[in-house]
Simulated assay, not measured.
Amino acid sequence: MKPAAESKPDLRTPAATGTKSVTYADAGVDITEGDRTKQRIKMLARKTFNKQVLSEIGGFGGLFGLDLAKFPNPVLVSSADGVGTKLKVAFELGIHHTVGADLVNHCVNDIAVQGATPLFFLDYLATGKLEGSVCETVVSGLSEACKANGCALIGGETAQMPGFYADGEYDLAGFIVGVVNRDEIITGATIEPGDCLIGLPSNGLHTNGYSLARKLLFEVAKYGPTQYVNELEDKTGAALMRQHRSYLPILRKLWTAGIVRGMAHITGGGITENLPRILPKGTAAQVELSSWQVPPLFQHLQQLGDVAQDEMLRTFNMGIGMIVVVPADSVKKAKAILNRANERFSLIGRIVRGERRVQYV
């Protein structure tokens, strides 16, 4: 018998078969627009480069040469984070510049509390349909914040995921790597009873507690995002979009002076959950609630929802974005450094004997 003819795929052109050619753009992914956007992003990222950056944007991996003269005994410190539902406010207001800085500064603070100098940053931006101008605006914020922190933006990912995100929305996350000499790492291990707590002010909610804040302001109070509210002394959207500040410049002055025993970045979980992360066994933190002025934003949020004090303290930073632990005999020196830098601060408590937790008094 003659064997059956082998079935072969029809490789004729769409015109020959009478069908319409389907492209990636038909599926919602515009490669051409993506390429144009990446070219603009490349220019923004290059502004953050220094002599340690050994690669260009667009490679499969970013290359960074470590300065061993400056860090002879290096330990790399890394962190990753996102902006969270603060992005919802950004979408509503059409403000996309500041969220990039929010992300960079958050990550910088997370490694600065261990005495680390930021080296390089990578971002991840995912959206349903790529809007080049929005993407470029977000990355310009990333670039400016990286440059301000002495950190190179050496790469990232811009993903188009049609059907995954609603129109006009995106998600933003970042990854940072820093370095500290092994003998200069700050962990909180030397903290002891009698040490003092110095609180540095936040610039608002920073990047935490937005799900609750949005519920209280927009659903409970039914404010509009551009509405001026007397109790906030600002428009709701403006109050929520205040930028997450970087504490690196002032922290560097303090740790260079050799007076810092520990630092806590007050983010999600508030003082209640973040300060115990640096406490050694057998110590507790006593925080005096009357030692600083809680900003109007937090006061109004609490009033709107009749939110319990404990809930406020473990959801929001309550006006304290960074806590620095110094020995009692170094407080005078710390105050002098802070005053010279025109940095506002409050003495908010001390370290006592006890279990690892915060005692509010």
Rank of each mutant, 00 (worst) to 15 (best):
G258P: 11
R12P: 06
N208I: 10
V352F: 07
S21K: 13
G61L: 02
L44P: 03
N73G: 09
G115Y: 04
Q160N: 09
T283V: 05
V294K: 15
G65T: 06
A264L: 11
G262V: 06
A101R: 07
V77A: 04
G115T: 01
N73Y: 11
R357H: 12
L347G: 07
Y170R: 11
T283L: 05
L197Q: 14
L122E: 06
H265K: 01
P296K: 13
G262K: 01
W255E: 09
M263L: 05
Q160H: 07
K215P: 05
G18P: 10
G224S: 05
I176W: 00
I323S: 12
F121E: 00
M161V: 13
G115I: 02
T23R: 14
G209Y: 08
F121H: 05
T13C: 14
E311D: 13
D81K: 03
E169N: 10
P118Y: 03
A285M: 11
E144C: 06
H106N: 11
A112N: 04
E33Q: 15
K38S: 11
H265C: 04
K147C: 07
G94M: 06
V260T: 12
Y228C: 04
V179L: 10
L142N: 10
R340H: 08
G156Y: 02
R12Q: 08
E184R: 15
P162M: 05
D167H: 12
K20F: 05
L119K: 09
D81F: 15
I348E: 14
